[in-house]
Write a protein that binds this DNA or RNA. Structure first.
Length: 159
DNA sequence: GCCAACGTTGGC
DNA sequence: GCCAACGTTGGC
């Protein structure tokens, strides 16, 4: 593990090559939503379909037990729940080339109050979030203090 | 639905 | 190895 991340810093606030163990994963809710993941229960679901090297490398850096926000892109534009990594990166069955990988995740808890992109942008503590600095990256690291702040805004205990 | 930003591809 | 063309993402 601790795979190389193409020479990039993983996250401001974390040292180079380290991760906080917190993530943010995007999905368009009309393709795969938070409630879809909840419906999978403890079995969880492979996070397939990522076709971006940076995003793949972040998935490779994930450990079982890491937590992430489930973010609804396009429709909703808000973090809606907390998920947990239940299987480390493995080949993506929906990919024929053999290049792409996915992790398995399960739903942990919904945010009592979804945290919108607008609210994130309006919060100076979250100014450095990848969500705003690289809006196209679908799998991204979250710094520990960002995790705590969004949990607070979302009305859930940070865990 | 539009389009800016970003990433990838392929010709040279 | 450069860069123009193209495709995709996701906010607006």
């Amino acid at each position: 593990m601790a795979t190389k991340t193409a020479g990039r810093k993983t996250n401001p606030g974390d040292g180079p090559g380290t991760t906080s163990g917190y993530w943010l994963l995007k999905s368009e809710p009309d393709v795969f939503s938070w409630s879809d993941l909840v419906a999978k229960g403890e079995m969880g679901e492979p996070w397939t379909g990522v076709r971006n090297y940076q995003a793949r490398n972040y998935m490779r850096a994930m450990n079982v037990g890491d937590r992430g926000f489930f973010y609804h892109s396009n429709e909703g534009r808000e973090a809606v729940g907390i998920l947990e990594v239940i299987a480390a990166a493995h080949p993506d069955q929906t990919d024929d080339t053999g290049k792409w990988e996915c992790v398995d995740v399960k739903a942990v808890v919904p945010l009592a109050k979804p945290v919108s992109l607008d609210a994130i942008k309006a919060n100076p503590k979250l100014a450095g979030m990848v969500l705003t600095t690289n809006s196209r990256l679908s799998v991204q690291p979250v710094a520990a203090q960002e995790w705590a702040e969004i949990c607070r805004m979302g009305g859930v205990k940070a865990r």
